[in-house]
Nucleic acid binder design. Structure first.
Lengths: 230, 230
DNA sequence: CGACCATTTGATATGGATCAAGCGATGTGG
DNA sequence: CCACATCGCTTGATCCATATCAAATGGTCG
């Protein structure tokens, strides 16, 4: 009855795609198209809440412009940022019924909003959409695993990783225009603003980077940063 | 054409199920059944490798008995444990083509092994299987997010979380028989064995726990531990 | 220009790591 | 069955990376 003959190789239509080597944006065709056709564009101001944790996860979101952060505030008041989402990226996908993290606009942002029920009905008709949802979840998992591994490293390794990740995601390979504050970076990396700032100055002294403005970072010697991470 | 009318509520057949409140094991029916019917039972000795990172992820695994750990060794030699898998739990599900973590038996274990291609062909025929795979990925994501949040907490909070998590997963609410060593616990929590040991003695002094044997932990006052975590 | 907020820099404190014994359990060979 | 070796765990002493506290600097907007 059920044999493995039909689908022997790994790149089956029913297994999620591996993350592309350089991800400009999440390459979801059917889902991306649904966003363009049926998504409602909504503007969010700087620091405005997009959704709160424990709220029902009734929507899926795609960043058009600006940056979005997801985060969780612990009892002691500390905030852990789960991820930053840049233009083209989809967020708000949750396994359960409720959001685990909250989401806010880091800077003024435009976001396409699509009802989860719409996505669900699309997935019923089109297996490609269903697979894309799975792929997206898998990619979030990989991202979170990578983030987790960051948190056991030294401050210099964390900051270097962050800079290289951002340089890769934005398309300028050697210059990064950061939309987030030092506090955002610190809360993403599990450090304090002081440590992030000191580490950046250290990188500057070592000529690994230049800081023409505090949110503009030039990677003068990415190799120095790369040998820190592993 | 495509409306949201058909599937308005959240518990659609095409959206993954939320994690059950108390998860004895992953409640996958079609997938679990496939494991029982078509999975090959394989014994692994203590510390034996089940798969290595960068190996192609060609199989899915379900623990029958014993405990499994997934981990990654960093360049500096430190090891980060990603997860422990107990009987009934499924592991080895990867978004990409290759494993990101390695897997080993913590103690002698029996594991059901199922070819990924078999699962893929099942998913083609049966949407329920496809959805279960997605649900499983989503649950791994939630678990990893929770783990990530642990790593920014104090030593006491991390150890308390670990004990409570284990007590919940094993079915004895007030006594835990740990299969893993202090080194395993330390590498899961991002601490050293010394710190784990000291924290346990501290809990013992505070009468929060008792340690009749080093791998047997009695939760004498779980409330004390619970107020630590958040 | 002046007020405000973000960032940097400096001084000090501290939680957990590291280094180093000591101890207890488990297993093996005589 | 005991002596001893081994391994894992605990305990102690010290060190260090990063946090914390505090002040100075710089950048932005009315």
């Amino acid at each position: 009855m059920l044999t493995q003959a039909t689908v022997e190789n790994g790149s089956s239509h029913y297994w999620p795609e591996p993350a592309p080597r350089r991800r400009l944006s999440v390459r979801s065709h059917a889902l991306g198209e649904a966003f363009e056709r049926m998504g409602a564009p909504v503007p969010f101001g700087r620091n405005e809440e997009i959704y709160g944790e424990t709220e029902p996860a009734n929507y899926l979101y795609k960043v058009i412009s600006g940056t979005v952060r997801t985060y969780k505030v612990l009892i002691d008041g500390r905030r852990q940022i789960g991820a930053f989402y840049l233009p083209g990226e989809i967020f708000g996908l949750e396994a359960g019924e409720e959001h685990v993290f909250s989401a806010e606009a880091v800077v003024d942002a435009r976001v396409l909003v699509l009802k989860r029920s719409v996505v669900a009905s699309l997935a019923i008709r089109d297996n490609k959409v269903a697979r894309e949802l799975w792929t997206l979840t898998g990619r979030e998992l990989q991202r979170t695993q990578k983030h987790l591994l960051l948190l056991i490293k030294t401050a210099a390794e964390r900051v270097a990783s962050f800079l290289l990740e951002m340089a890769e995601r934005i398309q300028c390979s050697d210059e990064v225009e950061l939309s987030m504050s030092r506090q955002d970076i610190a809360d993403y990396l599990g450090l304090t603003i002081e440590t992030v700032s000191r580490t950046l100055t250290q990188f500057e002294n070592e000529s690994a980077i230049a800081l023409p403005a505090c949110k503009r970072i030039v990677l003068r010697n990415p190799a120095v940063l790369k040998q820190l991470i592993a």
